[in-house]
C-alpha cells in the first residue's frame, strides 16, 4: 500500500509569536444525513466513539471525535489508519438509509497553531470572535482564513487546530507564518 503523505510534509514554523505546524495525515470522514434521526445517533456513536455533538460544537476523546459542520453534516475525526475500519462501520450502520459517509482525509490539510498568542494569530485572519470566554475548547467553527474556507477548534487553551482544503495548504501555511511573525503581537486578548 502506498504511504500517506501530508500536503506540506509536516512543515513547521517557529520563532514567531506562535508556532505553526502541519499535522497529518489525519483521518476525516464526512457524514451527511438527518442528524435528528435515532439511527444517525447510533451510527455516530458506533463509528466515532462519542455522542453526536450539539450545534456548533464538537465531542472529542483524545484524538478521536465528531464535529458539527452544518444542520445535515458531521465530520468524524480519527487517526489516519483507522479511517477504512470506521468508514465500514458507519456505512454498515447506515445500511440503505438516505445518508452518506465519505473518506475525505486526503482532501484536507491540518495545521496546529500553538503558543500564548495562538488566539491572536488566528483572529488576524478569521472574522471570528476568538476572545477567551467567547471561543473555548468544545466549540467548533467553520469560517474563512483570509480568502479560503477553514474549520477550527481549540484542542486546549493556547492550541488551535485548523482544517483547510489540501489545495490551499501552502497558502494557509504562508498566511499563518506571516500572521505569527516576531514582533507582531496585538495584545488584544
Amino acid at each position: 500500500m502506498s504511504e500517506p503523505v501530508s500536503a506540506l510534509n509536516n512543515i513547521s514554523h517557529t520563532g514567531g509569536i506562535a508556532s505553526i505546524s502541519e499535522i497529518g495525515p489525519l483521518g476525516m470522514i464526512t457524514l451527511r444525513g438527518d442528524l435528528s434521526a435515532g439511527w444517525m445517533r447510533k451510527a455516530v456513536s458506533a463509528a466515532g466513539g462519542v455522542n453526536l455533538p450539539e450545534q456548533g460544537r464538537s465531542n472529542f476523546e483524545s484524538d478521536r471525535g465528531v464535529a458539527w459542520m452544518s444542520p445535515d453534516e458531521l465530520l468524524l475525526i480519527c487517526p489516519y489508519d483507522e479511517v477504512s475500519d470506521r468508514l465500514e462501520r458507519v456505512q454498515g450502520a447506515f445500511a440503505n438509509r438516505f445518508a452518506l459517509a465519505v473518506n475525505v482525509s486526503d482532501a484536507r490539510a491540518v495545521f496546529d497553531v500553538s503558543g500564548p498568542a495562538a488566539r491572536e494569530v488566528v483572529a488576524k485572519l478569521a472574522p471570528v470572535d476568538l476572545a477567551p470566554g467567547e471561543f473555548e475548547p468544545g466549540q467548533f467553527r467553520r469560517t474563512r482564513l483570509a480568502q479560503v474556507p477553514a474549520a477550527l477548534w481549540m484542542l486546549e487553551e493556547d492550541r488551535i487546530r485548523l482544517v483547510v482544503f489540501r489545495s490551499v495548504a501552502r497558502y494557509v501555511f504562508d498566511l499563518l507564518s506571516v500572521a505569527a511573525q516576531p514582533g507582531s503581537e496585538v495584545g488584544h486578548f
Binding site: Q55, P71, P127, V128, R141, R142, T143, R144
Partner: peptide, 12 residues
C-alpha cells in the same frame, strides 16, 4: 438561522 453563527458579511 441554520447554524446559529453570528458573523460579519464577508463570511456570507
Amino acid at each position: 438561522p441554520n447554524c446559529g453563527v453570528t458573523a460579519e458579511e464577508t463570511e456570507f
